[in-house]
Amino acid sequence: MSQFIDADDLALLASSFEAAMADAPGPSEADQAMYDLGWAELLASAPGQGAATAFSALGATGSAASLLDDVVANALGAETALQSCCVFPTPHKADAPGRLRGDTVIVDGLLSARAETAVTTVLGVVTESGVGHFAVDAGLLHGPAVDGIDPGRAYRRIVVEIPAEALEPTASEGSWESAVATARVALAHQLLGGARWMLGEARQHAIDRAQFGRPVAQFQAIRHKLAESLVQIEGAASVAGACLHDPDPMLAALAKSLAGQAARTTATHAQQVLAGIGFTAEHRFHYWLKRMLVVDTLFGSASSIPVEIGQHLLSEGTAPRLIQL
């Protein structure tokens, strides 16, 4: 039974999470600091609010902390620990990353920075009897290092084959579907935290930067780009907020897709408003942009989720109301 945390305590948590992540030099230090603050216990007692608070902070600070491993492990009923990580679905997909083929498991997915030091990995595998999840020795999943677009290296792609006998059954009972929904809501909060940060940078720049003898914030073309960004962020945030407890899988999917779209729109507009300085490595904007591009692809993106939703609607022949007064 999950507890309910009141608004003042949540605000306090949010600021201590942000401070911890902002101060940590790297992802493993950030993970450690979050565990020291009681993150694992929070996730166990109030998973929805805990993840929303932590992932908003993750987005706002641009930290590469590997909190998604804990969220997915917790949703699957597996152990959350600094020595434990998960394999996430391949980019733009939400299917379990492992596929059983005879004596072999083909793993095509993503690993967080925590996988560098983890001992155990939780791996979702599609088998003939459905999706199961297993514990795997993390050493089996070491692949060649690839830089990718994100200088913070929060996630990397892994494509390997491992022997089926390496799969150790677990006693946990969470379903892959509910883990997907939970991860999507958490990631939606991260994308929105990042989008709000980008919007804040662009807003301040528009106020500070003068051209033609006045702040560029006075030009309607710029004002409307920033307004459009805020509207998309608020629309997505409302749906993410509606997913706090035991989210409906479709609503959680929509939250992730909307947050991804809001983050894409905000990144595009913020980049344009930041103009020259936003194209330099000197401004921090590019870190958030690149992280957004990566996080958008996790567990389905703003491009792929609408296809998934639309196919579901077409097979049902109708659209559910989802939200009620």
Binding site: L258, P306, V307, E308, I309, G310, Q311, L313, L314
Partner: peptide, 9 residues
């Protein structure tokens, strides 16, 4: 499907 999903969201 994609167009429907985008409108629905």
């Amino acid at each position: 499907a994609k167009a429907l999903g985008q409108a629905f969201q």
